[in-house]
Design a protein around this nucleic acid. Sequence first.
DNA 1: GATGAATGAGTGTTCATTCAT
DNA 2: CATGAATGAACACTCATTCAT
Lengths: 199, 199, 199, 199
Amino acid sequence: MPKVGMQPIRREQLIRAAVTTIDRIGLADTTVAQVAGAAGLSSGIVSHYFGDKNGLIHATMRQILRDLRDAVGKYRREAPDDTPRTQLQAIIDGNFDDSQINSAAMRVWLTFWAASMHQPELARLQRANDHRLYSNLCFQFRRVLPVERARAAARGMAAMIDGLWLRGSLSGAKFDVAQARVIAYEYLDQQLKAGKTSA
Amino acid sequence: MPKVGMQPIRREQLIRAAVTTIDRIGLADTTVAQVAGAAGLSSGIVSHYFGDKNGLIHATMRQILRDLRDAVGKYRREAPDDTPRTQLQAIIDGNFDDSQINSAAMRVWLTFWAASMHQPELARLQRANDHRLYSNLCFQFRRVLPVERARAAARGMAAMIDGLWLRGSLSGAKFDVAQARVIAYEYLDQQLKAGKTSA
Amino acid sequence: MPKVGMQPIRREQLIRAAVTTIDRIGLADTTVAQVAGAAGLSSGIVSHYFGDKNGLIHATMRQILRDLRDAVGKYRREAPDDTPRTQLQAIIDGNFDDSQINSAAMRVWLTFWAASMHQPELARLQRANDHRLYSNLCFQFRRVLPVERARAAARGMAAMIDGLWLRGSLSGAKFDVAQARVIAYEYLDQQLKAGKTSA
Amino acid sequence: MPKVGMQPIRREQLIRAAVTTIDRIGLADTTVAQVAGAAGLSSGIVSHYFGDKNGLIHATMRQILRDLRDAVGKYRREAPDDTPRTQLQAIIDGNFDDSQINSAAMRVWLTFWAASMHQPELARLQRANDHRLYSNLCFQFRRVLPVERARAAARGMAAMIDGLWLRGSLSGAKFDVAQARVIAYEYLDQQLKAGKTSA
DNA sequence: GATGAATGAGTGTTCATTCAT
DNA sequence: CATGAATGAACACTCATTCAT
């Protein structure tokens, strides 16, 4: 009696195992057999559910991106109000959520950033994500700033978020969320204030 | 006697070929034979001069880091004066120098960032470099800011520089130096001003 | 499910192919691909079943030693009685059994003898085998000779067996079993007689 | 000013280095560069004096055989008289001379024995040597024994010498010359005695 | 649905050999 | 005479992929 409806279960099992394995030994040293083994399955199963290794890698990156989107979405939905400042803080908080700044997530993220440089499909996903952060920031800044200022603020804010995140990833120590948030909030406030003054 | 004094020439040739190849097809797809071929040499030569592939990769990363150090050093030496603001701008300018923001350099940089996560020796080099940027920034900020403010400013400034650089690397378009410099300078001025006020 | 229970079959196939190949072209020129090819399999299979080339070589030597043990065991079980002389003759006969004095067996034996000098694991196997021959001989001699005489007789007998075998291996001609047996039996009788006299 | 007459010096230097290296790491792992390095010379020199690696190996085996011939010759010249027994003892002693039973000599000997199985030129040298031992023994035995007995005695004696030597080589402990000599002398005396009786 | 045996192309690495100096 | 830089063929080993069961 063949089990039915295994697909979503197996796919999630394998994607989770892929993240774990990439975190542990790096994408370059990750083999199909290792991922399958970490999932408690055999190597042949990967082609069954993802076509080939690349299919698994792509699916894994999509999952990572979805996790970030979900984290940001959650903070924004739970924000106390809809003022630009509150919403921008929610975006910052979402990017520094536990799901994003644990060691595994950060390492896998950076791995995909690097991989995307030579794999068009990954690059597409990665750019869409970059753009979403910028768009969200820009939309909120535009509510209080003139368009050019809003764009610059969004660019600076996005760079600040990614930069704090990147340096945290590579520092070798635990990511200091509080510190990162202070610096990011301060930049945010300066942008909001400067914009008003110049407006 | 055989040709003598070839070592530095061959090493540079091969390192340059490694950068070119990593830029073109990515570290994961870079083979020893390809690098040697790009340098117009045979594959065996790599072990002759670097021991093994890893030796070449390490030497290449050291070269990349040296290039950045040199670029920053040049801007600082050529700065019109030694005031903190001028020196900090020189550091920013050095990080956005042509040698750093051309496509090849950026891609190779990001590649090594990712690789350093699973290779202790690369991680060591990468962290030393991260720390140098922070130290240099912190030293200058300290000349005008109290120590705690200087540290926060240095952290924010470093994140801003890396973030702008990173998003530029991945954007797919040419890096907009002028725009990046405006955003970084603005952040710099805010930090200097804020510090004075609060001091 | 894939074909199951192939392991013992494949292992034996490959070990047999290893013996054949070592006999034909020598251990130094034996490649994994050649052994696999001789077994009608692909090169990757060796690592699948033996880990690496060394694993195959070790397994092959173990097989060779087992064959000798089996040959000696067979002659001793089939011996007409349990007197020392009969048992000692059975040991001699086992060492000169067809399975041991065909060209392939002799060449592979000598190959492993030489290889064992620089490979601790092979040396261990080889010494255990050497010691077994001596022990078996010594045990039988002790039944009729005083301990010191028995030890000397066992040493001489072991040397005689190995020496006849060795010179036969290298002579380039077919091993003359009858001749070897006469010489060995004569030495055996002298030892038994001399011992009795001196006892 | 080119040095003249370097050939014999360099050849000996390299042959000695080859013996040392083969003893230390085995023939299979011996490279031209290692031998040359052990001789304090550069790798290119080997082809200069021996044509190629095989030339060096062959020359080294010839040297080893010459050493044995010299050792036996010395003992025979220094023998107190020319009786068969004394001469046969001299042959035994020559084979167990220090120059033959030190670790390096034994390991290299066995190495060449094994190698000779698949290299016709080495096999030729090796067989000539085997035959010399047999001939020398047979000649002496014939002075007191009928031809057939002499031949059998020579075969047994040669096997005994080689067997003692072989087991000593592989035992892992220091070669016990006194013990080997006692066993070999005893066999010798039995052959001489038995022959006389039956004659 | 799932397995893992089997394949074979591709890679890093070693090393005998050549040869310009 | 001697060097050692350079070559490139050969090898062991890895691993994504296929497929009979």
